[in-house]
Design a protein around this nucleic acid. Structure first.
Lengths: 317, 317
DNA sequence: ATGCCTTACGCCGCCCGTAACCATG
DNA sequence: CATGGTTACGGGCGGCGTAAGGCAT
C-alpha cells in the first residue's frame, strides 16, 4: 500500500484557521473567539498554534492578545480572502436559487440622505418612491453602515445594492479591493470649512497635511469620517476635537463658525446659498487630489429584477 | 459528552477543494488533475462531488469536462483567492526569513526591451547595468511572461520585482485585482497603425469598436496582445489575420504597410523618425480612452535590499 | 472493449472536546 | 486566587487509497 497521504502539508493554511485567527485578533481574546465561533477555548488555542506552526512565526502576542507584526500582515490578507470566499459562495448560490421578491438596499449616511449634500445626486428616497409605484407589493429593507461594511455586505450577497460615498482620488472607486462592480454616480471637489476669521481663510487652496494638527470636528453623519481623511492625507493627526453625531450640515457649519474645529465637505454643500453670513468659508483642497464620490455598488444583477430596476433609476440622473 | 462537532458544515468550501476544482477545470480532466496534484482519480472525483454537494450545484460537465455556468462563476473567484492565499504565505514568510542575496526580476516583452518603444522608459537593461556596477557579485535572474503572470509571480513571492506593460484607461493600474503595489512609470497614448492608402488613414481619430472586424496582426512581442485590445474594446472580433512572433517594430510596420493587417502601438513608437515613407500612418484612438502603460510591480521591499535599489533606479526616470 | 468518471468500503490521522496544567496579575 | 491560555489524551469522522462499478465512445 502506498502511503495514504502523499500530499505535502505545504498548504495547510486552511480557511478555518484564518477565520479563527481573524476572530481572535478582532476580539483580542481566545475565549471570546471560541464562544463566537462555537468552539472550546482549547480548540481555538490549537488552531492558532497550528497556524503559527505552519507559518513558523508567532502571529499573536498573548496576555494581552495582540497581533504581532507578522500577524498584522496576515490579517491584511485574511480579511479580503474570507470576504471573497463568502462572495464566491453567494455568487454561485445566486445562480441557482431564485431570490425572494424582496429588495435589500444599503446606504451610507450621506449617500442615502435626502439633503442633496453632494449636489449631484438626488438620493435614494426618490428612486424608491418611483419603484414603489411600479411594484407596490415589493418588500424593501434599507440598511446603513460604513461604505466598507456595505460593500462587503453586497459582496456576501446580504444586500442587493448599496449606495456609498466617501473621499477618493478622482476616478478611483471607493470599493477597489472588494469583489463587486461599482459605478460612480457623482464626484465633486471637496473643501475645508473654516471660520471666516481663521488665519488660513483667505487662501485660494490648502494642503491637507498642513492641517493634520488642527482641531477637527468628527461628523460622520454629515461629512466624510476623519478616518478617511487620515488615510488620504497619509499622516496621523486629524484627531477629533468634537463629535457631532447629527446629520444636519447647517449645524455643522455653525459649529465650525463657533470655532469648535474644522470640517471637510463637498464644495457643492457650501456653494448652495445661505452660507454667506454663516461665518464660514470653504477653501478647496489642492493636495492630495481628492473628491467626494458617490457610487452604486452591486454584483451581477438578474435581468428584470427589482434590484436591476432600482439600479437603473439611480443611474438615470 | 456534547456532540463532538457542533460547528455547522456551512463553510466547507475548503481551499483544497477549490485548488482541485481549478486544476480540473484548467486541464479539462479529472485524471490529469489527479496526477498533477498527487491524488488518485477517485480522490479528485470525491473532492469535486463534495464541492458540488456543498454548493448544491453542478460545477462541471463531464465527458467532456467543462465548467458549467456556475462553475465558470466560481472560477472567477477561486483563482484570485488561491493567488491571495499564496501571497499571504509569501508575505508573512518574507518577514521572518532573510532572503538570499539574489534578485529575481520579471519583464514583459515590451516593458523589458531596450527598443524604447514606449518612449518614456529606458528599459531594464540600463538599470541592471548600473546595479551590476554597484553590486558586482549579485545574482540576477530575469524572466518573461504576460503581465498577469508576472504580477501573480510577484504576489506569490517568486519574483522581487516586475516590469509590465499593457493597455489601460488613463490612470488605471494594470494589476488592479492582484495584491501588489504598482507604480506607473510611463503612460502614452496609443494609435492604430494603418497603411497610408487605407480608407480610414485620413481620419483625425478612430473608435476602436469600428475596427473589430478589420484584419489585425497579432504581434505580442512588439505590440500589446490583441486579447487586451478585445477586453478594452468590450467586443469580440480583433481576430488575428497574421501572427508576427518577432519583437521588431520596424518589421511590424512593414507588415502593416504591405496590407497584412492593422496594429495598435504606442503613439510614441510612430512619432520617432523614419516612419514617414514607411507607408503607414498612425491614427490616435478616441474611443475607448486608452493608453499604453508601463508599470513597476512589487510587494513591500526590504530597505537597502537589491530589489529596492533596482526599483529606485527604474523609477528615477 | 476501453478510457474515464463514480461508487463502495476500509483505514489512517486530523481535529475537536474533556480535563488537567500553568502563568500572570 | 482567579482568569485565561496551553498541554495531554481519547475518540469520532473526514478524506484518502484500493477496488469494483457504470457509461459513453
Amino acid at each position: 500500500m502506498v502511503s495514504c497521504h502523499p500530499i505535502s502539508d505545504a498548504y495547510r493554511v486552511e480557511v478555518q484557521l484564518l477565520r479563527t485567527f481573524v476572530t481572535v485578533a478582532r476580539l483580542g481574546s481566545f475565549s471570546a473567539a471560541a464562544v463566537e465561533l462555537g468552539y472550546t477555548q482549547a480548540a481555538v488555542s490549537q488552531q492558532i498554534a497550528s497556524l503559527e506552526g505552519d507559518l513558523k512565526t508567532r502571529l499573536l502576542n498573548r496576555r494581552p492578545v495582540t497581533a504581532t507584526e507578522a500577524g498584522a500582515r496576515l490579517l491584511e490578507h485574511a480579511e479580503p480572502i474570507l470576504l471573497r470566499l463568502d462572495a464566491a459562495r453567494a455568487d454561485v448560490t445566486r445562480m441557482t436559487t431564485t431570490p425572494p421578491a424582496a429588495l435589500a438596499v444599503g446606504a451610507t449616511a450621506l449617500a442615502g440622505g435626502a439633503q442633496g449634500l453632494a449636489g449631484g445626486h438626488t438620493g435614494l428616497a426618490a428612486a424608491l418612491a418611483v419603484l414603489r409605484e411600479r411594484m407596490p407589493r415589493l418588500a424593501v429593507t434599507v440598511q446603513t453602515g460604513s461604505g466598507g461594511e456595505l460593500a462587503a455586505a453586497v459582496a456576501r450577497g446580504e444586500l442587493d445594492l448599496a449606495l456609498i460615498d466617501g473621499l477618493a482620488a478622482p476616478g478611483d472607486s471607493l470599493a477597489e479591493q472588494v469583489p463587486v462592480t461599482a459605478t460612480g454616480l457623482s464626484e465633486v471637489p471637496v473643501a475645508v470649512v473654516l471660520p471666516t476669521d481663521h488665519p488660513l481663510a483667505g487662501r485660494p487652496s490648502l494642503r491637507l497635511t498642513d492641517l493634520a494638527d488642527a482641531r477637527w470636528i468628527e461628523a460622520d453623519n454629515a461629512a466624510p469620517p476623519l478616518a478617511q481623511v487620515r488615510r488620504h492625507a497619509g499622516t496621523d493627526g486629524f484627531a477629533p476635537a468634537l463629535r457631532y453625531a447629527g446629520g444636519d450640515v447647517r449645524t455643522l457649519l455653525a459649529l465650525v463658525a463657533a470655532g469648535h474645529g474644522l470640517a471637510l465637505l463637498p464644495a457643492a454643500a457650501l456653494a448652495g446659498g445661505g452660507v454667506a453670513g454663516c461665518g464660514v468659508v470653504g477653501v478647496p483642497v489642492a493636495q492630495p487630489r481628492l473628491c467626494h464620490r458617490t457610487e452604486l455598488v452591486h454584483t451581477a444583477l438578474p435581468r428584470r429584477s427589482p434590484a436591476a430596476a432600482l439600479a437603473a433609476l439611480l443611474m438615470r440622473r
